[in-house]
Nucleic acid binder design. Structure first.
Lengths: 211, 211, 211, 211
DNA sequence: TATGAATGAGACTTCATTCAT
DNA sequence: TATGAATGAAGTCTCATTCAT
């Protein structure tokens, strides 16, 4: 699936990229502050450093901005996740390392993750699939890593469990952002990583009853 | 913390309750379909079965509808969750039963949970705390159940792990709603319950290596 | 010209009068506070001590309230003015006394005079003449008093001057109400009466130049 | 006291001035016809020759239009009054001339004076002082002229009388506009000027009794 | 390519008035 | 006669989008 085309009147691709980057940067902070719907196109233009007229030289509709923002955030997260998982050796240790890396990525991009998390649903039926696809790919990346461990004989899990675990890891990453008000009062990101990893691998152990 | 007051011109409390219930019902389906911001007050009035003028006899602003909706959904979920957890005996078995009950509640109220999940953030700074408090209470309910198991000697867990587990359970319930497009293609609600419960208690077991 | 009829569903005339008096009383203070247009019928009903439904048993439209209010104020002012002028003897002294009486009436009904002054223009083309007629009558009352002095040989004035003076007196009375913020900072009502009477009769005397 | 700022989205000050002038012109005739409250913003926009959206590029709220109108009328009246009074020589003759000029100004701007007169009270607590201040200044202008005559030895009047006269002159000017239905049936503007000037200076002369 | 003034559909909300009880 | 819930026309204001410069 190719990227969704966003209309631009300007031909110079270099310039388009540059202007859109300005736009995304400006928009993210606005979306964080007030959400997509409460942000006006004028505000976006201003925060991007150009006029409303110019804004519309690089997008077709307001929603395009949201698409661009979501798309860019996903790309960034995925790219970093990729980098982390590339070091994967198919061992439990490197799986753990991959999870930790992912959680740290989310920690470093909390605002972005939060925005994307809360605003994707505002995308039109048209744009949504393009963004969702990236999410699916990211979940799949975790699946592959787990699968690799299985192939290596380090783990022994049925297909459905693998998928479930991949989802859980992915969601637990996002959770660090979208439940930040509760979680970050109790845990540092390292606490969080340790606890979640521990629970993921050990589960809840029943108490050892004394005879 | 008392409930947030929503302005109503009509005095008859019975009627206010009745009309607001109509309103909530109508609004939920609209919010599911198009989200809070894209839903107009006139549409809400129409879906509720009365005129725009009448709508405003029972609320002060559009946002009040969202508050009423979120508040009511949380109440309903919590009430049912409560009912499930009341049977709790402080055994691992009844903890599992509680989780299963909760997941089933979410399954039966998917739309509502989804709406609430996606739209709470649109509440004003004013109304948000009232709704968030309910969430915190629900997480606390899981905590108590786990704690009960610990007191009964069935489990042995440190404080921070207890909290983490409670959060995880809570989020995994919601996840069934907000990741429905992925999850419900692969699993039935019973599969989901079994898998998640299994993972929660067993974790990922390393493969038993043959000598 | 008969009084303008204001529609009432209630038949009992005694009751109609009573309710309308309540209404006028309530409305005047509201009109003073926020003006006719910014006052709602509900507020009027509440201030009158009955429900909105009852209000409409005694009037046809909101504007009727304004008419009733203006009409009642004019009646009250005129009645008191009448009482003062009745003592008139056709002497300059009693003319002065009449003016003083009128100014005192205005002083005692400042709020009402102000309201009427500011809101008559909001009356419909339909109701306006009825109210304006009362004003004309009041000006005429002053005319008569002056005329009486002329007939008595105390004054000697042409017709047009008589009319002009009557208007001036009338306006100077109202002025005490509608320019109260300026005037009442500088003068008491007695100062005002003395000064205006003095100017009215003496005019501005040129300085007596020393030889 | 600086002018009250009225919000405008448009930057070009020249254009702002031009559009606001159009606005004022359109609004005045509407306000004359139906009053401020019965005039809608859409009507104002239409009468101004642009769309409702454009209207709001040059004002913040409907009330701003009223402020702009009142402010502009006062400015215009004052400016012309100023011009008349500048010729003042400190003689009774030039005082009379000043009064005549002022009355003629009012005569030429009857509609505007009337509007302002009837609608200032609709201004918010916020804007009122700015407009009232102009009125005070105008009254003060008459005071100065009279004072000048006193300094020149042409008149001999106590302070409080000076102020009273200034107020009377000012109000008698407005009166020509707001009592036009009565007055203009009887007098031409020149009649009015002559009569009022005469009364102002001569007062009501008692009849000379024949022996 | 950049600007920003102009546009108008449409959103939210108010409130005079009616009418069943 | 009194009540107050229901109604919906109409008002103010916003904001995405266009287009002449």
């Amino acid at each position: 699936m190719k990227k969704r085309e966003v209309q631009a009147s300007v031909k110079d691709e270099r310039l388009v990229k540059k202007r859109r980057d300005q736009m995304i940067k400006g928009a993210v902070s606005l979306f964080i502050e007030k959400g997509f719907h409460r942000t006006t196109t004028r505000e976006i233009a201003k925060a991007s450093g150009f006029s409303i007229g110019t804004l519309y030289e690089y997008i077709g509709t307001k929603e395009d901005v949201l698409y661009l923002v979501c798309d860019s955030i996903y790309d960034k997260v995925r790219e970093r996740l990729q980098k982390g998982l590339d070091k994967n050796q198919g061992t439990i240790l490197s799986l753990k390392q991959g999870i930790a890396d992912y959680f740290k990525v989310v920690d470093g991009m909390q605002d972005e993750v939060l925005v994307m998390y809360q605003e994707v649903k505002s995308l039109s039926k048209d744009a949504l699939p393009y963004v969702l696809k990236k999410e699916i790919e990211m979940v799949a990346m975790f699946e592959h890593v787990i699968q690799f461990c299985i192939e290596n004989g380090e783990l022994d899990l049925p297909e459905d469990k693998v998928k479930m675990i991949a989802h859980n890891i992915f969601v637990q990453g996002q959770m660090w952002a979208f439940r930040r008000w509760s979680l970050q009062k109790m845990y540092t990101i390292d606490d969080y990583i340790n606890l979640q990893t521990d629970l993921l691998f050990q589960g809840i152990q029943p108490a050892v009853k004394a005879e």
